[in-house]
Amino acid sequence: MKKYKLGYTTGVFDLFHVGHLNILRKAKEQCETLIVGVSTDELVEAYKNKTPVIPHDERAEIVREIKYVDIVVPQTDRNKFGAWEVLKFDAMFVGDDWKGSPLFSELENRFNEVGVDLVYLPYTRGVSSTMVKEKMKV
């Protein structure tokens, strides 16, 4: 039996790579149902000041077809607690590169108050969408 009934993670998932796959695989190993929030183009533009290479609908379709993913929802803002209020997940999974950041430290405290675990998964070193984009310039 898996530790959690309902898990949640989010991402842009632009130029899907093995780091994305690793997070989804490791999250699904720990929960019966995995919900993935895929950032909308507008959200990415607002907080990263760049337009994704692949449009949201296509990124969501790619993620939906990954065998570890059960449900895909649009992520329209970065309010993870607000997502919990709607989805009622038991655990949220995030790369350990976020551990200690102000955003996730505060979120961890809020989740503790409602019995939700914030689970940090190992970040895949040496790969990112930014690195893929840099290699494409060659």
Rank of each mutant, 00 (worst) to 15 (best):
M1E: 11
M1K: 05
M1Q: 07
M1H: 06
K2E: 10
K5Q: 06
L6S: 04
L6R: 09
G7H: 06
G7T: 11
Y8E: 04
Y8Q: 06
Y8R: 04
T9V: 01
V12P: 02
D14L: 09
F16T: 08
F16P: 05
F16D: 01
H17N: 13
V18T: 11
G19Q: 10
H20Q: 02
I23A: 07
R25D: 10
K26M: 08
A27G: 03
A27R: 00
A27F: 03
K28T: 01
K28W: 08
E29T: 05
T33F: 14
T33Y: 10
L34N: 02
I35S: 00
I35N: 01
V38I: 14
S39Y: 09
T40G: 06
E42D: 12
L43N: 02
L43V: 10
K48E: 14
N49T: 05
K50N: 11
T51I: 12
V53R: 06
D57A: 11
D57G: 08
D57C: 12
E61Q: 05
I62P: 03
I62F: 00
V63C: 03
V63D: 07
V63Y: 11
V63F: 12
E65W: 11
E65N: 14
I66E: 14
I66R: 03
K67P: 00
Y68R: 04
V69A: 02
P74I: 09
Q75V: 01
D77L: 05
D77W: 01
N79T: 13
F81K: 14
A83G: 00
W84G: 08
K88V: 03
K88E: 02
K88R: 10
D90R: 11
F93G: 02
F93N: 04
G95V: 11
G95Q: 08
D97W: 10
K99Q: 15
K99H: 08
G100N: 11
G100D: 02
P102Q: 05
S105N: 14
E106H: 11
L107E: 05
R110L: 15
F111G: 03
N112Q: 12
E113D: 15
G115Q: 04
D117Y: 07
D117S: 14
L118P: 00
V119P: 01
V119K: 03
Y120W: 05
Y120G: 15
Y120E: 12
L121Q: 14
L121G: 05
L121T: 13
P122A: 06
P122Q: 13
Y123D: 05
T124V: 12
R125L: 10
T130E: 11
M131I: 13
V132K: 12
K133I: 15
E134L: 12
K137A: 15
K137G: 15
K137R: 15
V138W: 03
